[in-house]
């Protein structure tokens, strides 16, 4: 699959269609996000998986937003998985990127990763290869919903209380593009107070994910104290889908929670 990605990126760079390609680079044994601008550099391009699925996933779309803000006229390529492509679609809806400035080079995820993620669509439409996995059910959500209200409360409060307020979930989130963040408003989240007030800190973020979260799960991976944030935001997505029939990244059009018409 990697050859196909390199081939496609080479084509795009040589043809001058894109100014650079936001992908993953492996150098000195480390994988990190990288902006490829020369064909010669592509020897170091990787797609992230070595032994296990999802060894290295990064919010590449987030870097793309920064590039777009700095170079609004230029066109860049980006490596996407199914979730990243949902992210691109949603970022277009939110006017953080425009399709004419982006060329997505997609890769499908293996079943093992799709299952671990409970991913609804582990492959992008715009892909260098055919899908190799099917959408999986969100087992974590099903488990949590099976519990009683009191038990859920105890479990959530227990995990929320571990929060060290590192803002890792927000900082890694490809859909967190606001210039001002409610989680830094003193009136809501007093500065210097540790741990943050629970559950309000996490619920503020959860509410802001409504109609926006594309379920990539990077927050979950970034959390140093293993708060199952993905489960929480999966529920958020589930409510928005059931109540308003809207799925960010799948459906065109704005989030029903942001549309001020009577629909």
């Amino acid at each position: 699959m990697i050859e196909k990605v390199i081939e496609r990126v080479k084509e795009l760079l040589e043809g001058g269609e894109i100014k650079g390609f936001v992908g993953l680079c492996n150098k000195n044994g480390h994988t990190a996000p990288y902006l490829f601008t020369e064909v010669a550099e592509l020897d170091h391009l990787v797609v992230g998986d070595f032994q296990n699925p999802g060894d290295a996933r990064y919010p590449l779309n987030k870097l793309l937003i920064d590039l777009y803000r700095a170079y609004p006229e230029e066109k860049f390529g980006v490596l996407v998985r199914g979730c990243d492509e949902r992210g691109l679609n949603d970022l277009y809806v939110w006017n953080q990127l425009t399709p004419k400035n982006v060329v997505a080079v997609g890769i499908p995820c293996p079943q093992e990763l799709a299952d671990a993620c409970g991913c609804p669509k582990p492959y992008p439409d715009n892909s260098v290869a055919e899908p190799i996995a099917e959408g999986a059910e969100a087992q974590d959500l099903i488990r949590m919903e099976a519990l009683g209200v009191k038990e859920r409360f105890t479990q959530w409060m227990e995990v929320f209380s571990k929060c060290i307020k590192c803002y890792g979930c927000r900082d890694i989130c490809p859909m967190c593009f606001c210039k001002e963040c409610s989680l830094e408003l003193d009136e809501l989240i007093p500065r210097g107070e540790m741990p943050p007030e629970i559950p309000i800190f996490h619920l503020v973020r959860a509410v802001h994910m409504a109609g926006r979260c594309i379920d990539c799960g990077l927050c979950n991976e970034a959390c140093p104290v293993d708060i199952p944030l993905r489960t929480l935001y999966k529920k958020v997505g589930d409510i928005v889908y059931r109540k308003f029939n809207y799925r960010p990244g799948f459906d065109k059009g704005k989030s029903p929670l942001n549309v001020l018409e009577n629909k």
Partner: peptide, 28 residues
């Protein structure tokens, strides 16, 4: 739609619907 704040009640209605379910999920 007959709100002093134009669409205020429409936005509220959606948010409350959403919030009730989210609260239930976290055990409130």
């Amino acid at each position: 739609g007959d709100c002093h704040y134009l669409y205020g009640n429409v936005a509220t209605e959606k948010r409350i619907k959403f919030m009730k379910q989210l609260l239930e999920f976290v055990g409130i």
